[in-house]
Design a protein around this nucleic acid. Structure first.
Length: 486
RNA sequence: GGCGGCGUACCCAAGUGGUAAGGGAGUGGUCUGCAAAACCAUUAUUCAUCGGUUCAAUUCCGAUCGCCGCCUCCA
């Protein structure tokens, strides 16, 4: 089997993955600032790193995965003021919402999910230490990091301090010694959330919380740090600067950044209103379909959202679910089973994932497998090879976090017609139903079977069309009908 | 202005120095009372454009065009 290669933002190349401690992986992924609902862009990042988490565990690593909440920030304060609610309540509300949204998307809980406000003491210690070592300075209640003191500032995003100075549209603050310096600690105004500190009442700046929390849970250096593309600069660059200033050595070995979800080719972004909230998407498609959609392209490429593409994913998911259902039915019927995997397919899948988490290719392999196993049971009696292939399908789905809706096949056959009283049933009672239970659907499917046997096809077709309207998928095989509730 | 990414069929999307995976959609067929599913066939002489290196490039190099992102908060 191939070895895992990861595209590292620092070098712009795929590098062989070697964890610091053999067998263990320490990974930190920037979560969200909780001041609003999550949108598709957040979902992409969260789902992708969830797959990374799952796959690393599949490879046998003991993974410590930290994903934070930034629950103190200007945006939270502003939003809370605007809505007239307590900032802490606002943050909590959106943390809850985050959990709801992503539980639906079948995202696993990270090992740790810390909040910035739980680490204020650690943040203060961190800043004090930076100050002590001359990397930070106090200015009118604020504390700033001195970017010029950082020798190789800019190595992640590939920019030099001088280039940025010339073209930057950075608003110049009188308090800063240099326009590039960033706030580690901000003096709070009246009525704003505030913590006691050596510099007076204030709160942490952005960036510092991630340095502190990653170090707290993972130590320095650690293996993987991830987040969206838009965090490369300045967020991650600044994390590196402050963390490496303190540690005196490398902060992170592998930086992974995912591409954006776009809408009409433009970045989804809350500030421009160009976005779909997850909640809204859930109204038009099921979460597992969304998950399929999010994994259908490579994580670094832009992913353009459209309802057509979502529809494609929907069909893909249904095809998958229907296929495994019918395969399982055939296997059961013939009493075939296996607890093994199809090694070749599994290794192909791992090769795809080892190539910088190529989920797009993995998805293609999945469908090849589906076709292959389907073909094998259609052409001949299912054997243990088919059972192994089916196991592999489940395995791949579980690593991708595709929580398939196990369709339960219900079968009615001509044998059931013996006790069937066609006179006791009326088409009107079918057509008039608000919704149908499976038992009712089964009864009507049986009726349809009877009608077909009597060659009363028009009526039989009407029944099918009504059943389909109620989301029952009808497949005829030989002397029986398989009913699937979609 | 600086830095970075992307450009493969109708759509999505892999991929490689040796002549284009897979999925959806379409078309023709097998099967079916009709469907669905499945299967078979078919859909890019071509990988944004133009040059260069090479026996050979979509794949390497260079230039051009187009789209997008970051440089301010952002997954």
């Amino acid at each position: 089997m191939s070895e895992l290669y990861i595209h590292n933002t620092v070098t712009g190349k795929k590098e062989k993955f070697d964890p610091i401690i053999p067998g263990k992986v320490k990974m930190y992924v920037c979560g969200v600032t909780v001041y609003d609902r999550c949108h598709l862009g957040h979902a992409r990042a969260v789902v992708f790193f969830d797959v990374v988490f799952r796959y690393l565990r599949e490879l046998g690593y003991d993974v410590t995965f930290v994903r934070n909440f930034t629950d103190i920030d200007d945006k939270i304060i502003n939003r809370a003021n605007k809505e007239g609610v307590f900032w802490k309540d606002l943050a909590e509300k959106y943390i809850q919402k985050f959990h709801q949204d992503f539980a639906l998307l079948n995202v696993l809980k990270p090992t740790h999910e810390p909040k910035a406000t739980e680490h204020i003491g650690d943040i203060i210690d961190f800043i004090s230490e930076l100050e002590k070592r001359g990397f930070a300075y106090f200015s009118e209640g604020d504390v700033y990091f001195s970017v010029r003191k950082s020798a190789d500032y800019g190595y992640l995003s590939g920019r030099s301090v001088d280039d940025m100075r010339s073209g930057a549209r950075i608003e110049v603050s009188e308090k800063k010694e240099d326009p590039l310096d960033f706030a580690l600690w901000k003096k709070s105004k009246d009525g704003e959330p505030a913590w006691e500190s050596p510099w007076g009442l204030g709160r942490p700046g952005w960036h510092i919380e991630c340095s502190v929390m990653s170090q707290f849970y993972l130590g320095v250096p650690f293996d993987i740090h991830g987040g969206g593309n838009d965090l490369i600069f300045p967020h991650h660059e600044n994390e590196i600067a402050q963390s490496e200033a303190l540690a005196g050595n490398r902060f992170v070995n592998y930086w992974i950044h995912n591409g954006f979800v776009t809408l009409n080719k433009e970045k989804m972004s809350k500030s421009t209103g160009n976005f779909f909230a997850l909640e809204d998407i859930y109204n038009v498609c099921e979460p597992r379909v969304l998950r399929m959609f999010l994994l259908s392209s490579r994580y670094r490429d832009p992913l353009d959202y459209s309802s057509e593409l979502l529809e494609e994913s929907k069909q893909a998911v249904f095809r998958l679910e229907k296929s495994i259902t019918l395969i399982e039915y055939a296997l059961q019927k013939h009493g075939v089973s296996s607890d093994k995997l199809d090694e070749k397919s599994y290794l192909d899948f791992c090769d795809a994932m080892n190539d910088d988490f190529n989920t797009s290719k993995a998805k293609a392999l999945l469908f090849e497998l589906v076709r292959s196993v389907y073909f094998s049971i259609v052409k001949k009696t299912p054997d243990t090879e088919a059972a192994k292939q089916l196991n592999t399908i489940y395995k791949i789905c579980s690593i991708l976090g595709l929580d398939l809706n196990k369709l339960v096949p219900v079968v009615v056959s001509v044998n059931d017609l013996n006790n069937f009283g066609a006179d006791n049933i009326s088409f009107d009672s079918l057509a008039g139903q608000e919704s149908l239970t499976m038992d009712q659907a089964k009864e009507f499917a049986l009726w349809r079977l009877y009608l077909r046997k009597e060659k009363l096809f028009d009526k039989a077709d009407e029944i099918r069309s009504v059943l389909e309207k109620h989301n029952f998928d009808i497949s005829d095989i030989q002397d029986a009908t398989i009913i699937l509730k979609i």
